[in-house]
């Protein structure tokens, strides 16, 4: 038996594949690897597959991880290429390897958040956003799992944020807490709406760049 981990890119059209659909997509590709995925025991056995930090629909990522277990003994070499023969556009498996680190060691994630302004970036926007994200408290309203609105302070979950700008875009390089609880970088949009409504962008694009351990090193 082996515990394996996949590192993959999710981008372009594949950004719109939901978490559950992505699991199904991988499940359908596994037969190409000739690996025998371990299944749960019980009346309706289902394959043991989990995606480490499910990406919100619409976002792209350079560094998704998927954990799975197989009955064979293998270090995972050659698996990535086989999987890539059956993937939809926008999903590319970069690596497959034996899982060494537990998911709890995953600490933060770094993302590029692009705020698009069709009429041009407002004067002083970069500075204002930088100041906003440096505040000690940044309370936004967020839907809870029970679909109620709740006030959440996202400031403690922001580790680092740097804002740059060009004519039509603000580029936010942001590092946020990844779990327990994690912060969706897209929520910066809500903070802007609440605190700097004049800076509300026309569109926000998020791409996950790295997932990091407590030492700021890539988590693999």
């Amino acid at each position: 038996m082996s515990k394996l981990r996949l590192l993959f890119v999710k981008e372009a059209q594949a950004a719109y594949i939901s978490h559950l659909d992505l699991m199904r997509t991988f499940q359908r590709c596994f037969p190409r690897t000739e690996l025998d995925i371990r299944h749960t025991q019980g009346y309706h056995p289902h394959p043991i597959i989990s995606i480490v930090l499910p990406l919100p629909v619409g976002q792209s990522s350079d560094c998704e991880l998927l954990d799975f277990e197989v009955t064979q003994d293998t270090d995972g070499s050659g698996i990535a290429d086989k999987l890539n023969t059956g993937m939809p556009t926008g999903i590319r498996v970069l690596d497959c390897y034996a899982t060494k680190r537990p998911v709890r060691e995953l600490d933060s994630l770094r993302a590029d958040v692009t705020l698009e302004y069709d009429a041009g970036v407002p004067e002083g926007a970069a500075e204002q956003l930088q100041v906003l994200l440096s505040r000690d408290s940044l309370v936004i309203q967020k839907r809870t799992k029970r679909k109620e609105l709740a006030d959440v302070d996202i400031a403690p979950m922001i580790r680092n944020a740097a804002v740059t700008a060009d004519e039509h875009n603000l580029y936010l390089d942001i590092t946020v807490q990844a779990q327990n609880p994690g912060l969706n970088p897209q929520l910066v949009e809500k903070a802007i709406a609440a605190y700097l409504p004049q800076l509300t962008p026309d569109f926000v694009r998020v791409r996950r760049r790295a997932i990091l351990d407590a030492n700021g090193q890539d988590f693999r």
């Binding site: 059209q13 719109y16 556009t89």
Partner: peptide, 20 residues
């Protein structure tokens, strides 16, 4: 790209499936 975040099941509208 701008309207997709506001619609249900956007994967229906983007193509890119295996074997397309």
């Amino acid at each position: 790209e701008r309207i997709l975040p506001r619609v249900q099941k956007p994967a229906r509208y983007v193509g890119g499936e295996y074997n397309a």
